[in-house]
Each structure stands twice: as structure tokens, then as C-alpha cells.
Design a protein around this nucleic acid. Structure first.
Lengths: 225, 225
DNA sequence: AGGCGCCCTGAGAGCCTGCTGAAGATCGAT
DNA sequence: ATCGATCTTCAGCAGGCTCTCAGGGCGCCT
């Protein structure tokens, strides 16, 4: 297990290196954002520990840059202050986990182990299938370059279909996940909303992106459609 | 996206429910560990928010029980006190993420979104015999590279034959498994549907993939045909 | 070879499912 | 209060699917 620690405070950096090596990890240290970015690109790590406040390039930028390059190595971000917005921003930038300083060594190792157990994440932040893209973070949806406005319910339905892209989902399953538990209405509501979605996301004269499996449910093609 | 919140403090529970529903999630609330365990078993959630200190069954136990049953729904654990050991233990019990109270709403949602983003569910393997392949998850069937469209009944019949590949299955056995229990019609319906399947899955000028054992039943060759 | 019974197969009727337009209900904003 | 957007219900329609039926073929037994 190879870990990259990007941390500009020499004391903390060397303490982490020593401690983690004692746990059996192989540890590389980068002392600023530029160096960290370079290291992360140069070799593949099992997890990256990334401070937010860094010289040259900050942690958010490093994280965003790696993600935009298709590098989905698990990233644990460290923040100097316990600002909540830091954390939200870190996770939305593409980090997998977050710790505010000061943290204890025990907690850090537990988080690292959890990240390692979880493995490389295979899915980018935005959900996508073909040229259809949906970002739960920003609540936006686009087909190619054109933005598509969706109502909350339409959005929730499409999100669910995208998370299950390629699989068939039944109408009752859809109702369970997209509607409230106490929803007592008819299955037909799903048909209606599928209809709304198709009207918005299908290109003219093209086949439906959301396929009907008669008697079973619906399926959104995993790779375009 | 359906979320289960297991939290015994009524104020917090209802605040979470309202807030998350406003975000477009469908939210169920369980007020103690036993209830939470029951709910998590009863239906499939996209993520579970689990307090550690709960009446009846505590959060660790709920988490461990679900994991031991093969339920890998993402779990976000909440701790009343910020004890570091709680967090390490939570992650080691099989939780995916951890928050200590008090936490802000923004942070909670960011964590939930990170968990949902990450959530991958593995699908059961496809059934196959020779170059014939049938995937119950995606409800697709293919012979070699060409996709074959099957009606629900045809699909169910072929699935049954594939699960019993190599064995002879009688018509009454087929009716028992593929048709409704109260089916009162004639055995001939099986012959008809075998015919439909052959028409769709057999290659021209080839022998039947589904063999007739006269007076006994049908058999699908286990290794191609 | 002949007869019997099992199986195959084409046609068609009825049912059921999903699609769709429209109207009523609900909610929030102006 | 009014308007607009969204959510939900309803009903008619079209087409696919299921099942029945009847005629014919073929294997198996005597």
C-alpha cells in the first residue's frame, strides 16, 4: 500500500511518514501542491492524504485537477480549521473523505484503512450515460452541450435510473426509491414521469434513452442511447 | 434515493427527515436499533444514517448484523460524543463513513452525497450455456453478439431452463415454476412457448438448443448446442 | 404397416400493459 | 388572491403478449 502525503508543515509531514511507515505503508511526501500533483501523476498511489492549505497549488485545486484527468485515487483531505464549508467543498471537489486538524493518529489510520478497504472509486462525481450527464451536487442535467431543466421529481427519477444504468428497475422499485414511503397512488405515475423525461432528454427522431421492458420495468442504457 | 435514518432523538430525527426530504430524498425514520434493523432488512435503501447510541440494539450491532447478512448498503454512523475510538470502531465494524455530533446539515448532506456517489452495487452473474447468455439483472438475452428480445414469459421459461441446464424438466414442472400457481390451462402452453423460444434462439439449419425428450420433457444442453 | 399418442405449429381472440393528452389538485411565489 | 409550475389522477387508445384451438407430422409400439 503506497500512500502519498501532501503536507507543507515539515514536522507533521515527517511525523506522518514515520508513523505510517511503522504501520507498514510505503509513504512518499510532497511539500507543496505542485509537487503533490506531480507525484500523483507520476505514479499510482493507493490513497492520497492532501492538506488543503498548501503553497503554490491548494488542495482543492490538486484534487480537482486529478479528478478532471480521470485519476480516481482515494483522497483524504486535511483542513487546518474545522470550517464546515471546507468539508462540504472538499467532498464536492471530489475528495473521498475529510479530517479537520487537529486529529489523532488513531483516527487518521482508521480513515485510511476505510478508504483502502473501499478501493478505487470507479465513478466520477457526475452521473453519466452516453452524452447524458446529471450532477447531483449542482442539481444540473445536460445532454451534450444543452442544459436540460428538470423538476425535482423528474430529477430524482433520472438520478435513480442513472445509478442503476444498464439494469432493469421495476415500477414498484422506482416508487419505493423516488416517491415517499406512504405514497398510495397508482403505478401509472411512473409511466407519466418516464414520459416527461423522455420528452426532455430524447433527441428528435431517436429511439428512447429509457427503454421499456414490457411487464418488467424500465432500463436506461449504460452507454449512451 | 431512499434513506433510512435510525435515530432515537425525536427532534433530530424529524429535523433530518424534513431537511432531507426537501433535498429530494425519500426518508424513513426508525426510532431504535431493532426497528432500524427491521427496516433495513425489509427494503433496500440507498444509504443508512445510523446513530450509535440507540435503545434496544446499538448502532455497532445494527451495522455488524447487516454486514454479516451480506447487506452492503452504505452506512453513515453518527456519534454523540467525538470520541476518537468510536470512529475507529465504527469504521472497523463496517461503516462507510462517520460524523460526530454536533454536525451541521451541510456537512451531513455532503457526506451522504459522497456515499451515494460511491455506492456501487454488484450485479449477479449472467446465466449462460454455450454462446447463449441471459442476464436477469439487465433482462437481456443474447446469442453470441446478437441481442434477442424476449417477452416476460419467454424470458422466465428460458431462465428456468438455463438454471436446470443439462437436466430434463417435465412440462408440469415447467408450469409449476414459470406459470402462476393457479394456472389451470393445458400443458400445450409449454409446447407453444418452447416453440417461440426455438424460433428466437436457434440458428438457421442448426439442431434445436432445447431438446425434446419425448414423453418426459425438455432439456437445454449445458454446454452450447 | 397401421394405429395411437405426443408434439409441433399457425392463426386468432381477448386481455393486459404502457402511452399519452387533459384536467384537477397542490404548492409556492408574486 | 392570482398565477405558474409541478404533481397526480383519469380515461381512451394502440399494440404486444398470452393463451386456446385445431390440424398435421412424427415417433413408438404392436
Amino acid at each position: 500500500m503506497r500512500i502519498l502525503v501532501v503536507e507543507d508543515q515539515p514536522r507533521l509531514a515527517s511525523a506522518l511518514k514515520r508513523g505510517l511507515e511503522a504501520e507498514g505503508f510505503a509513504v512518499d511526501v510532497a511539500l507543496d501542491g505542485a509537487e503533490g500533483l506531480w507525484a500523483a501523476r507520476a505514479r499510482s498511489y493507493d490513497v492520497v492524504v492532501l492538506d488543503i492549505l498548501l503553497p503554490k497549488v491548494n488542495g482543492y485545486q490538486v484534487c480537482a485537477a486529478l479528478r478532471s484527468e480521470g485519476n480516481w485515487t482515494p483522497i483524504l483531505m486535511l483542513s487546518a480549521k474545522a470550517g464546515e464549508w471546507d468539508e462540504a467543498e472538499a467532498l464536492d471537489t471530489g475528495a473521498d473523505d475529510f479530517l479537520s486538524k487537529p486529529f489523532s493518529y488513531v483516527v487518521l489510520v482508521a480513515h485510511l484503512r476505510a478508504l483502502l478497504r473501499r478501493g478505487v472509486r470507479e465513478r466520477p462525481a457526475a452521473l453519466r450515460a452516453g452524452d447524458l450527464e446529471l450532477d447531483p451536487g449542482t442539481h444540473t442535467c445536460r445532454r451534450g452541450d444543452t442544459e436540460i431543466r428538470l423538476s425535482p421529481r423528474e430529477f430524482a427519477l433520472l438520478e435513480f435510473l442513472l445509478r442503476r444504468a444498464g439494469q432493469v428497475v421495476s415500477k414498484s422499485e422506482i416508487i419505493d426509491h423516488v416517491w415517499d414511503l406512504d405514497f398510495e397512488g397508482d403505478d401509472n405515475i411512473v409511466e407519466v414521469y418516464i414520459h416527461y423525461l423522455r420528452r426532455k432528454i430524447d433527441l428528435p427522431f431517436a429511439s428512447h434513452a429509457i427503454e421499456t421492458i414490457r411487464g418488467v420495468g424500465y432500463r436506461l442504457a449504460a452507454h449512451g442511447g
